[in-house]
């Protein structure tokens, strides 16, 4: 599951200021997270700064290749009138639109949508958990060699800032990880949690088992 953040405004403006812009917003996962208000404020600013917003489309699930292909045909007229496309979605939406426009333009040269420049309006951030369901603070690193057997069901890869497999680094203070994030966001030391958990279930012996190594070829 993914969340997005508006790209720095200066970056965006440096690309599109003063141009004819086609705006595409994806509200499909907006139920998860899309900075709608920030985007609308930015668009307002953009409009006031002499950039022509040819069309501002609010769509959903741009990641769905089939729908997006259908819809791009519906927008053909406006696309023809614009020079740049800014897409407010996760990285997947941008890739899908870009690929479709590229296909259309390589098939037919009369096509209205040749050589459009596409800019992502958002940066996509990784969100805990898989897609679909509401995120929890559980996370899976999809390492391909689940270590949860050794760690009382607490993932050392995602609950330890260094993804250590064989025990704590010694950097934790009062149970908190040494990686104290800005604004007081501090994560608990994953290995302390693992130790306590194994202690409660009487399986501290697991910790003495073989040294564990990541196999990155599985990633």
């Amino acid at each position: 599951m993914l969340i997005t953040q508006l790209k720095p405004k200066e970056d965006l403006l440096s690309f599109i200021s003063g141009e004819k812009v086609f705006i595409l917003q994806c509200y499909g996962c907006a139920e998860v997270f899309l900075p709608k208000e920030e985007i609308n404020l930015f668009l307002e600013e953009l409009n006031n700064s002499g950039t022509l917003i040819v069309k501002n489309i609010i769509s959903d699930y741009l990641c769905n290749y089939e729908y997006t292909k259908l819809r791009i045909n519906l927008w053909a007229e406006e696309l023809k009138k614009s020079e740049k496309i800014v897409i407010f979605s996760c990285g997947i939406g941008v890739q899908v639109v870009s690929t479709i426009l590229n296909q259309v333009s390589s098939i037919s040269h009369q096509s209205p949508v040749t050589s459009h420049q596409i800019y992502p309006g958002c940066d996509t951030l990784y969100l805990n958990g898989f897609q679909g369901l509401t995120p929890f603070n559980f996370d899976c690193a999809q390492c391909g060699q689940c270590f949860l057997n050794y760690t009382g069901g607490i993932c050392p890869l995602t609950s330890c800032a260094k993804s250590l497999l064989n025990g704590p680094c010694g950097g934790a203070k009062n149970g908190k990880c040494e990686v104290a994030g800005p604004a007081g966001i501090v994560m608990d030391c994953g290995w302390e949690k693992i130790y306590k958990k194994l202690e409660t279930i009487g399986r501290l012996d697991i910790l003495k088992e073989v040294i564990k190594l990541r196999d990155y070829s599985k990633r």
Partner: peptide
């Protein structure tokens, strides 16, 4: 890439 070498499981 490490996959080409003798430590295929290494972190690239």
């Amino acid at each position: 890439h490490p996959l080409l070498g003798d430590h295929k499981d290494a972190k690239p």
